[in-house]
Design a protein around this nucleic acid. Structure first.
Length: 420
RNA sequence: GUGAGCAUAGCUCAGUUGGUUAGAGCAUCUGGUUGUGGCCCAGAAGGUCGUGGGUUCGAUCCCCAUUGCUCACCCCA
């Protein structure tokens, strides 16, 4: 049996209503904030991600789906959306046409990681990017939109974490000092953290090892190294969140794994999913557009994982979708009337009803069971005595009442079905 | 990439301290008087017990390998 490739999943008909429900809320919140949808290709030139996300990041160094196409070009399935959106902005000079572009998107992303609860190789994200302004209101706006979407989905158990990375210079200064602090303790650290010393020193703060935590207790914090402008920016973000009543905590250890962040970074985590608990993450990236060959354009954005959100909804039983109904099921009582039955179904469908019927000439009882299984509001019986008198029978399933109509008077039948 | 756990019907799971015809619930199908659902009742269909090897008179069960899945680490949505 051929199965879906590791880390990919089929979204079966039963799940589609949940996805559509989620998307409808996403679209509604983003359009209330006047963000416009953008769709970019699922694959891009590999160098876009290498330059945009950063060669040294985990995503680029070990997670990308990269292949050489038939013309010899290196192509990569997008692991995230920001790089593609920025590329499109530059390519189409969107930044020249208006000074602020507020954009949103939703679609599949690809990363070759080991699958786990809430993590897949093909997964779906929605997100937003605001390009062209350094206003901290926009940083806050990203968090507000994400939070609003989660609240409208009925999610509880959320924690908003924010931090500021400042500008690259102060971050580099800080890392230097941190390295000096950690170095004398290096041989006491866990092996994991010793690795982090070289790769991503700030991650040592995240370690679950008690020894590491004790050593890091008195370590200098990034926030002490931020310049005044960065601090003011961060202050303004926090104030905006306070005044809009978004509960948050400052997490000075919150570092994100993409190179392009400056100033604000944030994450919203859920306690209702497994260990991959970040439902969304994002931040400001004032250097990215220029890095990708555009003019100096500040930006801020976030991305949210749809599988994780739906998992949280499921675990919290936050939304209950009423089971789907069809308007009409047509039961054929005797053989030989299939043509009339089928035509009747088509006629009602063209009037706008959801109609189904039996396709394998089964018994009336079997057809009724089918009608019941499909949650039909009405059943129309065609055939038998009534039909020979020119009549067909309409049954209201919930009331269990039925009534005869002339077989030519479809308008009247339609009217009684619609009446309800 | 690393580690642990799991693999029996479409689904959720029993089970055999190795013995002949492998079970349940749900779902599916048929029927319960000739043409009417949901509840109930009766019956049917459905399994090379993940795959390959080994031990044994005999393996679904024990051993080895392999594949897949799950969870966790790393990292991230």
């Amino acid at each position: 049996m051929i199965k879906a490739v590791t880390g990919t999943r089929d979204i079966l008909p039963n799940d589609i209503p949940k996805w559509n429900f989620l998307l409808s809320i996403v679209e509604s919140v983003f359009s209330q904030f006047n963000y416009k949808e953008i769709r970019t290709p699922i694959f891009e030139e590999t160098s876009l991600f290498a330059r945009g996300i950063g060669e040294a990041t985990d995503i680029v160094s070990k997670e990308m789906y990269t292949f050489i196409d038939r013309s010899g070009d290196s192509i990569t399935l997008r692991p995230e959306m920001t790089a593609g959106v920025v590329r499109a902005l530059i390519e189409h000079s969107l930044d020249k046409k208006q000074n602020l572009n507020k954009l949103f998107y939703a679609g599949p992303m690809f990363r070759q990681e080991r699958p786990q609860a809430g993590r897949f190789r093909q997964f779906h994200q929605f997100g937003a990017e605001a390009l062209g302004s350094n206003d901290p209101l926009l940083d806050a706006e990203m968090i507000i939109m994400a939070y609003d979407i989660f609240i409208r989905l009925g999610l509880k158990n959320l924690i908003v974490k924010i931090n500021s990375l400042g500008v690259p210079e102060s971050r580099e200064n800080y890392k230097k000092v941190l390295r000096q602090y950690v170095e004398p303790h290096l041989n006491k650290l866990s092996s994991e953290s010793r690795k982090r010393f070289d790769t991503n020193i700030m991650r040592i703060f995240d370690s679950k090892e008690e020894i590491d935590q004790r050593i890091m207790e008195n370590a200098p914090l990034l926030i002490e190294f931020l310049d005044d402008e960065s601090l003011q920016h961060f202050e303004k973000v926090k104030q905006t969140l306070l005044s809009t009543k978004i509960p948050f905590e400052v997490d000075t250890k919150l570092v994100r794994g993409l190179d392009y962040y400056t100033h604000t970074t944030f994450e919203i985590v859920s306690g209702s999913v497994g260990s991959q608990s970040a439902l969304c993450g994002g931040g400001r990236y004032n250097l990215l557009v220029k890095e990708l060959g555009g003019s100096e354009t500040p930006g801020v954005g976030f991305a949210a994982g749809m599988e994780r959100i739906l998992l949280a909804c499921e675990n919290e039983k936050s939304f209950l979708l009423n089971n789907e109904k069809i308007d009409l099921f047509i039961v054929t009582i005797e053989k030989g009337l299939e043509k009339f039955t089928y035509q009747t179904a088509i006629d009602f469908r063209r009037k706008g009803l959801i109609v189904d019927l039996d396709y394998s000439s089964r018994s009336v009882k079997a057809q009724m069971r089918e009608a019941n299984r499909l949650n039909a509001k009405y059943v129309l019986f065609i055939g038998g005595e009534e039909f020979s008198k020119g009549e067909i029978v309409l049954k209201n399933m919930s009331k269990s009442e039925q009534k005869n109509y002339s077989k030519n008077d479809l308008d009247q039948i339609f009217a009684s079905i619609k009446e309800k």
